[in-house]
Design a protein around this nucleic acid. Structure first.
Lengths: 252, 252
DNA sequence: AATGCATTTTTGTGATCACAAATCCCGTTT
DNA sequence: AAACGGGATTTGTGATCACAAAAATGCATT
C-alpha cells in the first residue's frame, strides 16, 4: 500500500542543490585554485544549466565563506592564510569539542559501533597507503561522532567549517600522518564515549584538531599564504604548476 | 582628485542585500509569527521587487537557519523549542566565549573605551525603563567585544546565531533584567579585557549567556515550545493574540 | 456532516532577456 | 617602454515568462 512517496527524509532534487553539491565537492577535492575567478556563466556552461540555479548555489557558498566576493561583484576562491587557518582551528576546537562532549552523553551503543568501525577503516586505508580513502574515512569518523550528538544546528556549523578547511587537509599527507598519534587519540575518544566521559571526549577531539591544523598552519610561506595540495587519488601525480587554473569540474 | 569611488569598504547596494537586510530586521524585531508561511511573491510584493532578489535572500536565510524549508519546498519561520534554544545556548557560550578571550588579547585602548561606553548606555536605558534601547545597546556591547577580537569568520558565525536567538531576547524583559547581575558581569568583563585576562573574559561572557538563555528556555510550555514576545517599543501594548499573522513588513 | 475526487489556483523553479557596471583590448601618446 | 584612454566585450543583476508540483477549492457521494 504505497500511500506517500517521500521516505520521511525527502531529498532535495532541485538543480540549485545539485549545483551546490557539485561546487562543494569540487572545492573539497581541491579542484579549484585559490584566487581563481569563478564566473556564473562558466559554471553554468560546465554543468549545463542556466544562470539561475548557479547564482543561488554560489550565493549560498559565499554566505558560508566557501567562496568570497570582491567589492566589484565578482566571485573568487578564497586564498588560505595562516591567520585564517588558525582562526578556523580555534573555532573547530570549540565546536567539534562541544559536539564530542554532547556525543559522549547521548551516543547509543550502535552509534559507537559505527564510530569504532570508521576508526578501524582509517587504519586499514592508512596501512595500504591509500590517502584518498584515509581522508574519506576520517571524515566519516568525525561526522559519526557529531551525528551521535544529535545537535542539528551544531552539525550544520561544523559542516561549514569543514568546507573551508577541507581543501587543505591533503597537506597532512604524508608528513603529518606518519608522525601522528591519531589512532591512539581516536581510541581514547571512543573509550570516552563509552564511559560517558564528556570532558575527556572534548579534550581528545580538540587536541586532534589542534595538532592537525597547527601542522598545516606551519606550512605557510613567508607571506602567510598556504597553497593546497593537488588532489591525490592513489598515486596520482601533481597536475599543473601552482596557481594555474585547476578547475575541471565536469557534469555528471 | 576623485580617482576611485569606493571608499575601501564598498557597500553592497544590490536589491538582494536590501531584501536580506529587511527580512533580517523583521525577524530580529519579532515581526514574524513562528510557523508562519512565507511566500516569495508576498515578500516581493511588500518590498516592491521581483522574485529574483527575494529568492536569493530567502535562500541565504534558510541556509543560515533563520528560516526553514519544508520538504515540499515552502518556507516557514521556524518555531523555537527548548531543545533548540539550549543547543544555541551552548554554541553561543563556546563561540562568544572564544571571541571574548581573543578580544582580551587583542583589544586596543580605544576599543575598550567603546565597549565601556556601550555598557554605560545600557545602564542609562535600563534606568529609564527603555527596553528597546536597552536591547540595542546590549547588542552593541557584545559586538564591540567581538569586533575587538578581529576574527572575521568567528564574527560571521556569531551574527548567524544572534539572528536565530534574537526574536526571543525580548522575553528577558522585564523579569530577567531586574533580577540580573548583568551590569556587574559586564564590568568584570571590561576589567578582564583591560588586564588581558583571556580566561576571565571568556568566563564572564559564557556565564552571561548561560544565565540569559537558560532563563528563556525555562519559559517553554509543556510541549517545549517557546513563543516570542511582541516587539516592545517604549510602552507599546501587545499587538495580537499569539499565533496570529504578525508580519507587517513595510517597504522603506 | 464527513469523505473522496477532480478542477482550479497558488507557488517555487529554471530559463531567458535587457541592461549597466566592470573588465578587457588595443592603439595612441608621452 | 610605460601610461593613458576609449570602445568592445564580458559579467552580474533584476525582471519576466513558462511550467510543474503543491495546495486550495468545490462538488458529488456515502
Amino acid at each position: 500500500m504505497p500511500h506517500t512517496e517521500t521516505p520521511p527524509d525527502a531529498i532535495d532534487t532541485s538543480l540549485r542543490q545539485q549545483v551546490y553539491d557539485s561546487l562543494r565537492e569540487a572545492l573539497t577535492m581541491g579542484r579549484f585554485a585559490p584566487g581563481q575567478k569563478v564566473t556564473f556563466r562558466y559554471i553554468a556552461g560546465v554543468l549545463g544549466v542556466s544562470l539561475t540555479p548557479v547564482r543561488e548555489a554560489l550565493r549560498r557558498l559565499v554566505a558560508e565563506g566557501a567562496f568570497e566576493m570582491n567589492p566589484n561583484r565578482s566571485v573568487r576562491v578564497p586564498r588560505m592564510t595562516r591567520d585564517k587557518l588558525l582562526e578556523l582551528r580555534d573555532i573547530r576546537m570549540e565546536l567539534e569539542g562541544l559536539a564530542s562532549a554532547k556525543a559522549a552523553m547521548a551516543a547509543t551503543r550502535s552509534q559507537i559501533a559505527g564510530i569504532r568501525r570508521a576508526a578501524r577503516e582509517i587504519i586499514v586505508a592508512r596501512n595500504r597507503g591509500d590517502s584518498a580513502t584515509d581522508r574519506q574515512k576520517v571524515r566519516e569518523f568525525h561526522f559519526s561522532v557529531y551525528a551521535a550528538a544529535r545537535q542539528p544546528t551544531l552539525q550544520r556549523l561544523i559542516e561549514g567549517l569543514w568546507l573551508q578547511t577541507g581543501p587543505y587537509m591533503n597537506l597532512l599527507y604524508p608528513g603529518f600522518i606518519s608522525s601522528s598519534r591519531g589512532p591512539a587519540g581516536r581510541q581514547r575518544l571512543i573509550e570516552a564515549l563509552q564511559t560517558r566521559n564528556a570532558t575527556a571526549a572534548r579534550r581528545e577531539m580538540a587536541d586532534d584538531i589542534r595538532r592537525a591544523l597547527s601542522y598545516v598552519a606551519d606550512l605557510a610561506d613567508e607571506n602567510g599564504n598556504i597553497a593546497p595540495a593537488a588532489p591525490t587519488a592513489a598515486g596520482e601525480r601533481r597536475r599543473r604548476s601552482a596557481g594555474a587554473a585547476a578547475f575541471d569540474l565536469h557534469a555528471n
